[in-house]
Amino acid sequence: MSARTHPSTRPLPTGVDTRLPWWALALPVAAFVALLLLIAGPGGAHATAGDLGVDRVLEHLQQTLAL
């Protein structure tokens, strides 16, 4: 014998808050800005002046894209 199923009579929730807290956006933005400043900061410019690794990577990229 099968049991009958009853449709749900509960009302749907109408007051659901889908907004994010302020820090849910501020923390990733702050982390991104901090990492960007570490990469592009003036303190790292003198360290890469004598390094040819970056030049080799860029040259390799140029050769690969020229195919």
Rank of each mutant, 00 (worst) to 15 (best):
W23G: 01
L61V: 07
H60M: 07
D17N: 04
G15R: 03
H60T: 00
P21C: 02
R10D: 15
L65M: 08
P42M: 04
D17F: 04
A30M: 01
P11K: 07
P28Q: 05
A24E: 01
L58W: 08
L38M: 02
P28Y: 08
A47P: 09
L37I: 07
L20D: 03
P7V: 11
V29R: 09
G44Q: 10
A3C: 15
D51V: 05
V16R: 14
L38N: 03
H60I: 00
D17A: 00
G43L: 11
G41I: 13
W22V: 05
V57A: 03
V33W: 08
A26P: 07
T18W: 05
L25M: 03
H46G: 08
P42I: 04
V54Q: 09
A34S: 03
G15C: 03
D55H: 07
G15V: 06
T14E: 09
L25Q: 00
R10K: 13
L58S: 10
A66Y: 05
R10Q: 14
L35S: 05
A24V: 00
V29N: 02
L25D: 04
L58C: 11
L27I: 11
A30V: 00
V16A: 13
V54A: 13
L58H: 11
D17I: 03
H60N: 03
A31S: 05
A34V: 07
V16F: 14
L20K: 02
D17M: 00
L12S: 12
S2K: 12
R4K: 13
V54E: 11
P13W: 04
R4W: 15
